[in-house]
Design a protein around this nucleic acid. Structure first.
Length: 465
RNA sequence: GGCCUCGUGGCGGAGUGGUUACGCAGCGGACUGCAAAUCCGUGUAUUCCGGUUCGAUUCCGGACGAGGCCUCCA
């Protein structure tokens, strides 16, 4: 099966062929760790986790897959926050302390979302040497220059700058909305290295004590862990310009390569209840806050119900629907053993990560298993769910978690359920129905059934979400 | 202002130049003491206006609407 992916660079879907048939390499821009990640940040984490899973499956026998997701741990917001929180510490130690703490929280969040750990999670501050090396190459090749203590990339030095974002140089309005710094030769030029004052984080370099510009870290980490060129580079669509455009400029000019990555994949944005998610509107919700109300798999399914390039309107209703679906899947799957993922699910994902189609296939597998009752069908359903990062806990744990989250007195409910069952068995239907109403008022739904073997009446309960 | 996406049923959301997936909700039936849960079945849609075509939701142009980037925001 040859996967096809939409490539922002060519604005077209094309067959994917790894540059090195024995090694598939992907890089995704990871978090800037200064604060809890919000739900918008979760989208690339989940989307590219699915891509990672797909590639591992498709190349299981022919290639290894390396997934690099960086951690940005030096940046002006980080620097400011660390100075505020740890004023007594050395600046570099201060940002380390802050980013380590934030990263631990990030790891918890991303794990709860069902994402596999990437092969490598490099930190920007551990790649200062590589950044300096790239800068030196760019200075040597004439693609960069020194000015007022800064190293700057000279955009006019690169003939085909702007290909990814399809912004012809002469049409760019740089400087129209922001004052152009005096040290730039051209308004489009961007910083590779900038001087730090002693109270700011910094490292010694051939150009003095300073710190990296925004884009250089990704070029450095991708180079170190994947090489001068690699297969797939992913991130949010907002990163197309300027971040990815500038990464491409740095890496291609430093290594004299026609491309940095063959395929550039970008996920769309989230809206919140129909409105733009923004801090000023106060509708920014963190992953952590959502995890207090919903299992991570509910967030994951909600994310994957929409194709990764489409915008998502993040709504309570959508979360509720996902929760219902997962309740059914957990109930239906019943911890059965998994076989390998279904071919149709893989086909859907291989078509530019068509996760809505893949989910439709899951429904189809579930219904097929329902009809046939065959163990092989069930195993294929379960295997496909697991492959997509669902069913991470037992059906029992899933149901128990829901009961706990509802905050009902479980012992009291059990007693009422038993009393109602006793009344029903005694054909005292008035009392039985009264107790059922009482439970309903508590948000408890009863599920009566007959044991298929013995024919005995039995009852289970759950809480309304 | 420049550039880029997108507009599908009550809701969410795919594919497709010619019978329009899938899920939720709704409706009908089975089951049930009655329900719920479950199972079976089922109605409803391609923003508008032109063009190409035997035929367009799909391709092209325009209008209207929504979102994004051009501001170190995924």
């Amino acid at each position: 099966m040859v996967p096809r992916f939409y490539n922002t660079l060519t604005r077209d879907k094309a067959d994917f062929r790894p540059l090195d048939p024995s090694h598939v390499r992907m890089y995704v821009c990871g978090p800037t760790v200064y604060d809890r990640a919000h739900i918008g940040n979760a989208r690339p984490l989940i989307v590219f986790d699915v891509l990672f899973r797909l590639l591992q499956e498709l190349y299981r026998t022919s290639a290894r897959v390396t997934y690099v997701r960086n951690i940005t741990d030096v940046e002006d917001k980080i620097n400011a926050r660390a100075a505020e929180r740890f004023p007594e510490m050395e600046p570099v130690a201060g940002i380390r302390r802050l980013t380590e703490e934030t990263y631990q929280g990030f790891r918890e969040d991303v794990g709860a979302l069902g994402c596999l750990p990437p092969t490598v999670e490099p930190r920007a501050t551990e790649h200062i040497a590589e950044m300096i090396a790239i800068n030196e190459r760019l200075l040597a090749s004439g693609n960069a220059y020194l000015s007022e203590g800064h190293v700057l990339f000279s955009v006019p030095s690169m003939a085909d700058y702007g290909r990814l974002s399809q912004r012809p140089l002469d049409e760019m309005q740089a400087g129209a909305r922001v004052e152009v710094e005096s040290y730039k030769r051209d308004p489009m030029d961007f910083v590779l290295w900038k001087p730090s004052n002693p109270s700011e984080p910094g490292w010694n370099s051939p150009w003095g004590y300073g710190r990296p510009g925004w884009h250089i870290e990704c070029s450095a980490m991708a180079w170190k862990h994947l090489g001068e060129t690699f297969d797939i580079h992913g991130g949010g669509i907002d990163l197309v310009f300027p971040h990815h455009e500038n990464e491409i400029a740095q890496s291609r000019c430093a290594f004299h390569q026609p491309v940095m990555a063959s395929v550039w994949m970008h996920n769309g944005f989230l809206q919140a209840e129909g409105e733009k998610m923004s801090k000023s509107l106060g509708n920014f919700v963190t992953i952590r806050e959502l995890l207090a109300d919903w299992p991570g798999e509910v967030l994951r399914l909600t994310m994957l119900k929409t194709h990764y390039r489409q915008p998502i309107d993040w709504t309570l209703k959508s979360l509720e629907e996902s929760a219902r679906t997962l309740d059914d899947w957990y109930w239906f799957a019943r911890d059965l053993t998994a076989s390998s993922p279904d071919h149709a699910v893989l086909e859907a994902l291989a078509d530019d990560l068509n996760t809505p189609k893949a989910i439709a296939e899951l429904h189809g597998l579930r219904n097929a298993a329902q009809r046939s009752g065959a163990e092989a069908d069930l195993a294929r359903f379960v295997g496909s769910l697991r492959f997509l990062g669902f069913l991470g806990e037992s059906a029992e744990a899933w149901a128990a978690r829901k009961k706990e989250a509802a905050g009902v007195d479980q012992a009291a409910v059990e007693a009422l359920v038993a009393a109602r069952l006793a009344a029903r068995n005694a054909k005292n239907f008035a009392e039985s129905d009264r107790l059922r109403d009482e439970l309903a008022a508590l948000g408890v739904i009863l599920k009566d059934s007959k044991d298929p073997k013995t024919g005995a009446f039995r009852t289970e309960w759950e809480v309304r979400r």
